[in-house]
Nucleic acid binder design. Structure first.
Lengths: 241, 241
DNA sequence: TTATAAAATTCGACTATTCAAATAATAAAA
DNA sequence: TTTTATTATTTGAATAGTCGAATTTTATAA
């Protein structure tokens, strides 16, 4: 009883009148990684999988799994792997929300390029304040998607529709609009800038090269270009037909 | 030679094409504290003085002094105390610049109250990106003062004029405008909100009570109020006469 | 100048996080 | 089912930062 009370006091003193659960930078990054893996459903979430996302040592992951389980943010079962608890999911979604809102801010308000915003948002997402995300959301006029086309979770945790059909998975001959990108690395985004592809760009999928899966496409009605299969898998589209 | 080269590479890889010196959160907070003490000139900057600002243990300060001296951000001499080097001063001013710009953003764009912005800016000031502060500055239309009336360092490190005359130091009978506040605690700022005092508010200093230095003032032409000497010392003014 | 108080410094310890290497457990292949 | 490979876990160590207590240095007062 005393412990709970004391803990609450701690939160309150740090975050004013709003009840706010505090996680370390590291904890937040693990939550985000686990959330990301949970989105790629099907697979069970193992320590190694997490260590690959975070590019760190599995030994570190095992430690943190224990810590997050103690905090009741995840459940860990050797059979089932790692699962976010309701609270863990809420917290992870909030981090994603903050990340994507900041990305919109950086691009639209501060004029950063597409390929520059991810790393900065990676820092901004950890700023702790109970109303900051909601105020930013309002200031940005409640955007539904971030500049990479990823849905921005609403304040209540609900998600706008997300796109999952890749350009590479379409039939040759079809047309589509770019709705989102899977890879947000600056290498990929700079390539897209060079090709003049952005969210909303119309792409005609002309033919697929059987040899290596390369795609012959036309971007915004311009002359044909050939891109790799890997490239096509990282473009998510809204089909036209 | 190799070491220097390697170190540069490290910076480059983290911060893109811009050369950018990286400090830890803790180092930045020490720099800021030292900068603040250096502003209150006259006094030599001792480990204890720093520990008072940061509310930590002098033993920790001694360790960090060594670290910052190794990084050539400060010079330490037992006789002269701590002094910021040219580089240390530049870095400290940049942190202050970021802090004050973010405060303007939080108040003007996100609608936070006067007394809420300091703590959030305390986190935002550590976001590392070579062009972020300048872009934010431009977005905010190059403000000269933050919401507490403190001058915002320009990109080149130059400072707009700062105010140093306190309300308490005026002669009874004079009038003035509030130009800045010395204390930025939310307790003080909330009191000011209650009294309806903000930057720019006109105050008539009617009389001083000899007993305890209390000030009888009229705020914006309204009925008389009495405030403490401590209060008067924390209001910085632009005299009218 | 000597005694005393204050400040600076060293020391060992503690937390959070990370890692590499060794070991244990589990899954896959033979 | 036994062997082999993969994965998970433990262990011990490293780093950055912090602290309290002990010690040394410096400044102040008697």
């Amino acid at each position: 009883m005393w412990l709970i009370f004391k803990t609450r006091l701690f939160y309150l003193s740090l975050y004013g009148t709003h009840f706010y659960r505090m996680h370390t930078l590291s904890e937040e990054n693990y939550l985000k990684a686990i959330y990301r893996l949970a989105q790629e459903k099907g697979q069970k979430i193992t320590p190694t999988a997490i260590s690959e996302v975070l590019e760190n040592n599995p030994a570190s992951v095992v430690d943190m799994i224990r810590k997050l389980a103690d905090k009741q943010l995840i459940d860990y079962d050797k059979k089932k792997g790692v699962r976010l608890t309701d609270q863990g999911l809420k917290d992870a979604i909030l981090i994603v929300r903050r990340h994507r809102l900041w990305e919109v801010f950086l691009l639209e308000k501060l004029g950063f390029r597409w390929d520059e915003i991810h790393d900065i948002a990676e820092e901004l997402e950890h700023i702790k304040d109970a109303t900051l995300a909601d105020r930013l959301d309002k200031f940005l006029n409640f955007p539904e998607y971030d500049p990479h086309g990823d849905p921005i979770p609403k304040a209540n945790g609900k998600m706008p529709k997300s796109y999952s059909v890749s350009l590479a998975s379409l039939k040759a001959g079809s047309s589509c609009h770019v709705a989102a990108v899977r890879d947000t690395s600056s290498a990929f985004l700079q390539y897209l800038l060079k090709l003049d592809i952005g969210i909303g760009t119309t792409i005609q999928f002309i033919e697929k090269i059987p040899f290596d899966g390369s795609l012959v496409i036309s971007i915004g009605g311009k002359e044909k270009t050939t891109v790799s299969q890997k490239f096509g898998e990282n473009i998510l589209v809204d089909g036209i037909g």
